[in-house]
Design a binder for these strands. Sequence first.
DNA 1: GTGGTCTAGACCACG
DNA 2: GTGGTCTAGACCACG
Lengths: 138, 138, 138, 138
Amino acid sequence: MNTQSFSIDFRSGIPVYIQIVEQVQALIARGELLPGDQLPTVRQLASELRVNFNTIARAYRMLDEAGLISTQQGRGTYIMESLNGERSKFLKTRSLEDQIVGFIESLRQQGYQPDEAASAINKVIESWKLGQVSRQFE
Amino acid sequence: MNTQSFSIDFRSGIPVYIQIVEQVQALIARGELLPGDQLPTVRQLASELRVNFNTIARAYRMLDEAGLISTQQGRGTYIMESLNGERSKFLKTRSLEDQIVGFIESLRQQGYQPDEAASAINKVIESWKLGQVSRQFE
Amino acid sequence: MNTQSFSIDFRSGIPVYIQIVEQVQALIARGELLPGDQLPTVRQLASELRVNFNTIARAYRMLDEAGLISTQQGRGTYIMESLNGERSKFLKTRSLEDQIVGFIESLRQQGYQPDEAASAINKVIESWKLGQVSRQFE
Amino acid sequence: MNTQSFSIDFRSGIPVYIQIVEQVQALIARGELLPGDQLPTVRQLASELRVNFNTIARAYRMLDEAGLISTQQGRGTYIMESLNGERSKFLKTRSLEDQIVGFIESLRQQGYQPDEAASAINKVIESWKLGQVSRQFE
DNA sequence: GTGGTCTAGACCACG
DNA sequence: GTGGTCTAGACCACG
């Protein structure tokens, strides 16, 4: 994998470790990181991004806890082998549900009503199916 | 206006002042706060919500800077009389649709498929209609 | 809560942050920490235990992610209010299942057979029901 | 002995050398390795398991120090002829029962109830019998 | 006042 | 060589 795939925006206000987590997720989602691939070592990526190694370690730990990568003390860090397997399906579904509950809860908090939310969400998902959500961002 | 219209979730991770800003926006958007209506005073709302005085002050300052409310030294705080053009643009910036597009985009980025997302979201919205999303958190 | 409730064994080889996580869990399980109770602040506990504040922060973050405590930026850290509610039941069940899958997997790894494991486990659970597991440790 | 008797889980978080020590112990305990049997050489096992040479050497050293195996310079490594008294005590130290008592105690400490634990454990053991625990991880 | 992020660097465990 | 833990301390966000 090309280390150039990572880029940190130090002015964004988004914590560096979150930016790294999200970029690894995106690389996996887009198939640029495949099961079994080794990630750059904590210290190597830290030095390339001009960031402290603890910051990278924290990002890798989060990805490990999320079941996306496998950290092997003394050997390195690898993309999970079985990202198609039962277990990873389970983890992905769990994570999806957690995110949705959090998001819906925040809409409820802001005073939106279930029906207006539902219809707005369905519209956006329709665009997604047609490939139009991504277009805005790529 | 009824102070009961506000509810703070201290566990959500969303800063309290942001929650207040968003709720005022939502109340205005839904016509529950009308131009000329007076908001509760900073101290009154702080004590009702059991929140630090500075937190409410910060929320009101943001709403004032955004032109949604008008703070009149010694008289109180009122919803702006003219909520067209500029202001409504701002209101829409943090609108329901924007939040949904951002959320869906992040699901897409993580590699979820429209159909699994849609069905999981619909399940959560069903619970919401039945009053169960909130129950989990209260 | 009494800060004396915590004690760290620096020679045990068990990471300090894990020791703290486990002690908070135990205090909650034994009812010495009740929903709504405030934990000592990160810096306060750090200075009492002669430990770096980052170490405490890491322990608290883990407890927060596990849904046992609620960290409120700028306000402090509290035992979750609704440790009887739906959500916490859900979290506890999830955590139980995760721990069991991990433990059973390790038995399988070591070459034990399902039946010998099952019968040995059932024996220990019987003692537990009779209050005898705890006796060894208290 | 068949080298296939060993299987390493690099994702388990359990150090590889501990996994090997435990598997040799289990094989002896179950009579699949008998006194006098020769173990694979360090280099042979290392290459089969795709593990660092030093890792196997460390595991064998621990087993040797525990008196379970006998390393004979230039001749190979053999299961100890006399596995009574002292040695079997060691074997039992990390025995099935000990691990189970430790695990159940930790569940009790966390406040789980015997019945919920028992039923969750039985579910997982059922999957194990059907070969599904392992599947999730392979 | 309280928690969060990040750094620079020491020392350790595992391979 | 590779990751983990911990420290001491700077600076920031929120209340």
